[in-house]
Design a protein around this nucleic acid. Structure first.
Lengths: 142, 142
DNA sequence: AAAAGTTATTTGTATATACAAATAATAATA
DNA sequence: TATTATTATTTGTATATACAAATAACTTTT
């Protein structure tokens, strides 16, 4: 069934969640290559680009709560893709060599994913949609 | 931090999920009155409007998997808001009197929520956004 | 310098959701 | 009619996420 045909299509809660779920699914496909969920992959990329970044910063950048970030980090640590060092109340997160090696592949996934949805909606239209989503989201309490 | 300022704001996965989470939070507020999550409330409203509706239909209408629908129904059954009858492989879901009584309140919540985000974005703009979200989502595999 | 407040992070627990497999019933085919 | 395929639903398990409380460290005020 099409989302636009559901009786709740006019509800922003319903539509934004349905869209997000479909996007997530598409993204999962694109990131299968590296055996990571999109969230894990994004966090990892930030850490590779900004070695030593703190969980709090990751939380802001990824728009996820601190506790969720901790959980993501834990999993990536298990996979030997990053490490944490803690001094006082400050934690710094660093990529392992294994993670750094993965970087090109990670970027490939970003690209694959972008192509996947640009093919469906077109670049122009995609950007316009992104813009209006931000316009709304930025006004909502986080 | 604003979503539009995150380094991944140009990613549709990231932005649609971030928007959905904020919307969900706003919606949770609006549905607190009836002590239900938006999904539970929507499912309940469909059942009140279409007594006897089958889980499979609910699944299509709500864009959720059958298993998720089963879980939502279970919870609403616990709350004595609906009941299931099963004949053969067909299950029918019916509202209890308690649920029917709640209907006006449920609709109030829908209204509250609509106002909450229309106030932020404006009616016109909201509808436009909804339309483009559907345009994209309807083209994605469900 | 002690007390009170603030900040950064983690932990315990709960949620909504999905996937894959299991069940069971019905329909189609040989 | 017996077998096979399809359909509807549930169950077991796993996921990403959040909230609230706990820790622990640092900062400000008194």
């Amino acid at each position: 069934m099409k989302i636009s045909e559901s009786r709740y299509s006019k509800c922003m809660y319903f539509s934004s969640n349905a869209l997000a779920r479909r996007m997530e699914k598409l993204a999962n496909e694109s990131w299968k290559k590296v055996d990571l969920s999109p969230s894990h992959a994004y966090l990892l990329m930030i850490v590779i680009e900004d070695p030593g970044v703190q969980p709090g910063v990751l939380s802001g950048e990824m728009q996820l709560t601190p506790s969720t970030v901790t959980r993501l980090i834990e999993k990536l640590e298990e996979k030997k893709l990053l490490i944490r060092t803690t001094v006082g109340k400050i934690t710094n997160v660093y990529p392992t060599p294994k993670a750094k090696q993965m970087f090109p592949k990670l970027k490939e996934c970003v690209h694959d994913f972008f192509n996947a949805y640009a093919k469906v909606l077109g670049k122009e239209e995609s950007l316009k949609l992104l813009k209006s989503m931000h316009k709304l989201a930025d006004k909502l309490p986080s």
